[in-house]
Design a protein around this nucleic acid. Structure first.
Lengths: 203, 203
DNA sequence: TATAAATTTCAGAAATTATTGAAACTCATG
DNA sequence: CATGAGTTTCAATAATTTCTGAAATTTATA
């Protein structure tokens, strides 16, 4: 590996981390390298920098493309594919969240819903099925939240994050204000959850 | 494997998923089995149900204990250790979040902070270092948010989740209300982020 | 404290996953 | 439409991880 020291440490760390995230060490390192690079890199650049075989790099790039984590670019007077990561790191965060949801959460939820529907032949399965239903409900709550929040624009998102748990105070305030109701219905001042527009349940 | 059909499918699925989550298939299956079981199970029960070797089950249980995902119990008139998962699934969600943060995020943040502090010998590292700094900032924003929200009690948390992106409306409302300021400072009605108590930065 | 049940350790075997190099393929260009 | 740079595929091999069984250790109780 022929790489300046800071970059090398970064790349090494993400190699190890990648392994915990369902990609191989190689793929993690390739991504880390692209992420810190100040220009698009082609496969040969990566071979040069990390010392993997050409074919390994090719497969790694293919996998990163399947994760939508890298972008293909073409430089003038160079036929080779070059790769970059988005300039905007928030975009990367969003892509990661989206992909992990699609690969881990969604299939699990599908399975749980299937199992929740069935009528077990063996009555001893009742408890297990109840737990599966409960799990599905919680996952639905979390993914519904995610689906709502994921499209909030970055600046707004930062505001929400900065508020953190203090959001509770704001909700309490809103509840008090609801004592002067806008529309006909007399709001329940104790429970802030009612204001949600209407539960989505397609997916 | 001697297990009724719904449980078997559930256990199999979580075995595969576990593999994507940094635990082995075996560990995933053991956890899934404990999760749906209506009583505490001992190692022999697990061997019986899943057909792994006794020692494999022992190591799996040890790993689950290191994740704090299972609880040790003792039944009357039985010397064997028995294991359960928490009744309250939200508690499991919290433990998972806590553990994954500790194993994946915290070490990464430490490394990024270290690298961000150093003065690169090679000036070509400037861009890489800038990206690392930016990454550290975003991770800090997210983990600070998490640290604030993680202790919110479950019912409150459900309310927050149910609000979802609609929270923006509440913030806008709060901003308007801030036009009648409580204390001296005249609030900026455009930017809701200022109300945060003060940035924690210990960890 | 002896003993027997329960659990853990650990080195090797088995299974899985990652990596490579050679060959096949693609496709813009002369 | 032939060439060759660039890319991908794939079977083989290397590396890693997981799993096992036998032996060692721990622990409750007699």
């Amino acid at each position: 590996m022929r790489l300046p020291p800071l970059q090398e440490r970064f790349v090494m760390h993400f190699g190890e981390m990648g392994a915990r995230w369902g990609v191989s060490r190689t793929v993690g390192q390739i991504y880390a390298l692209l992420f810190v690079s100040d220009r698009p890199l082609c496969a040969d650049d990566i071979v040069e920098a990390l010392g993997f075989s050409r074919s390994n790099v090719s497969m790694g790039l293919k996998e990163l493309q399947s994760w939508k984590l890298v972008r293909l670019r073409h430089l003038p007077d160079d036929r080779r594919d070059h790769f970059t990561t988005p300039e905007d790191i928030w975009e990367i965060v969003r892509t990661l969240a989206e992909q992990r949801k699609a690969r881990e959460i969604d299939p699990t939820l599908t399975m749980l819903r299937e199992l929740a529907m069935e009528t077990p032949a063996d009555p001893s399965e009742a408890h297990a099925q109840a737990r599966m239903r409960e799990t599905a409900e919680i996952i639905e709550l979390l993914t519904d939240w995610y689906d709502e929040v994921k499209d909030v624009e970055t600046e707004r998102l930062k505001q929400l994050l900065a508020l953190g748990a203090a959001i509770q105070k704001v909700i309490e305030m809103k509840d008090k204000i609801a004592l002067f109701p806008k529309r006909g219905a007399a709001a329940d001042a104790k429970d802030g959850a009612e204001t949600k527009p209407a539960k989505r349940r397609e997916r």
